[in-house]
Each structure stands twice: as C-alpha cells, then as structure tokens.
Amino acid sequence: MAAGQEFRFAKIVGQVFLVALSLFTLFPIYYIVTASLKGKEEYLLNNLGLPHGVALENFRSLFADFAFVRWLVNSVLVTSLVLVFGLLVCCLAAFALRRYTFRIKGLLLRFIASLMLIPPIIAIVPLFEFFVRIRLINSLAGVIIIYIGFIIPFTIYLVYSFFVTIPGEMIEAGVIDGCRDLRLLFWIFIPLSVPAIVTSIVVNAMWVWNDLLMAMVFLQSDRLKTLMAGLIAFRSRSNINLPLVMAGLLVSTIPIAALYLSGQRLFIKGLMTGLEK
C-alpha cells in the first residue's frame, strides 16, 4: 500500500519536527526555572543539569531586596491602573461609535485603526520633551497616561467589533425599559462583549507589563522603575549571582503568565473574532 506507507512516513516526519520544535521552545524555559533553583556555586559547576534540590534561597533574597519588591509593586500598580482607566475610556468611545450615527464616524474608525501600526519609538522624543515641560517626567502618572494612549487604537477596535454584533432590537428594548446610556453600556454592551474585554485585558496587560522603552525613558529614578526597567539594572547589579537574576526573571513572568492562563480560552476567541471581522 504505497499511499498508506507514504501517509505513515509523513506522520513520522511531522511528529519528529514537532518534537524538535517543542524541545527548542522549552529549553530556555527549562534553563530559567532550573537556574533559579540553584545556588551560586552549584550553578558554576553545573549550569545545564537539574538542580540538586529545591533551594528557595534565591527567592528569599529576592523578596528581601527592597528595590525588587518596589519595582514589582510599581508594575502591578501601573498595569492595573492602565487597564482600569484605559478600558473605561475605550468602552465609552466604542459605545458612542456603536450607539450613535454621526457624520465623521467612518473616518474616525479608519483613523483609529491606522494608529495601531505606529511604533512607540517615534513618539519617544516629542513626548519626552513635552513631559519635561509639563513636569511629568519621573512620575508613574506620566507613564500611565502614555500607556493608556498607546492601548487605545487596538482596544477601541476590538471592543467596537464586538459591540457591532449586538442586535439593534436588544438596544431598543433597553431604551424602552428606560436605560440611559451608561446603564446600556454597563448592563447590555459590556456583559455581551466579555471575550473582547478579556482579550483586551490580557493583550494590554502583557504589553504594559512587558514594556521596556517607555519605562526606561520616562522613569529614571531607581525607586520609580517598573519591573522590566528594574531587571536591566538588576542584571548589571547582580551579574556575579546569575541564579538570583534568573529567579528575578521567573518572578517577573509569573503574574503575567497567570493572567494569560486564566483568560486563555476567551483570549483566543476574542482575538479571532476581532481578526475575522
């Protein structure tokens, strides 16, 4: 059976390829986790193998490090405030775009969509000069404003693409029941767009949490740094104790990975609905 043999052969090649790709993908993660569990001396002797035991000393000294904890708190603070206010701003705008018709609506939507491609690097210098002038350099409020600005195009677009699918009769029914605009938004629009809300929370949280460029330019004093900017300083400060740095990397990843995992199913659904539109 030539066809059957060929099929089996293709399947084996496919499996080999996928296994190789998985090993390639997992190796750096294996490295981060194992290295963070090793002692300083143990790492020097054995950087590749499994650790002797589960030594939590790196994590203990990490949380005893005042700067690191401070960066962690800053990151949590910045990310959550950006999400709360950013979503509010975007839901309001998307609501106006869905609920009402007005002359420049189409133009506005196209304008918002085209902003999604503007890379942050081009905004850095003008914003830096402007923020120096209005004294918002070195302030968490300053970066929060910038981050909110940058998540707007994607978030409005995504939320709007869900709002559009809400049937007009449903909105009418709400209006007849005496819902004012804000009640419509919070009782009808948002509950019907949970995948979009979750997706934008996950995507934007990852972006804000993981950003280095803005954090480096706009937060220069050590105690105001977010985790990502902090990690760069931490690497050079602790470069003789590599396992400690790896523990820092692991701890910085866990909150955002946990958020992603908890929203994973809705995330893929939301992203695809947005993409298919």
């Binding site: 309001l92 404003i145 940058f150 707007i152 409005i156």
Partner: peptide
C-alpha cells in the same frame, strides 16, 4: 464619550 480617547490619541500619536 469620545473626548478622553481622542485627546489621549492626539497626545500619544
């Protein structure tokens, strides 16, 4: 409703 989003986009983009 549109003002906050538009103002922030103007500032950042």
């Amino acid at each position: 409703y549109l003002a906050p989003a538009l103002l922030l986009s103007l500032l950042v983009f």
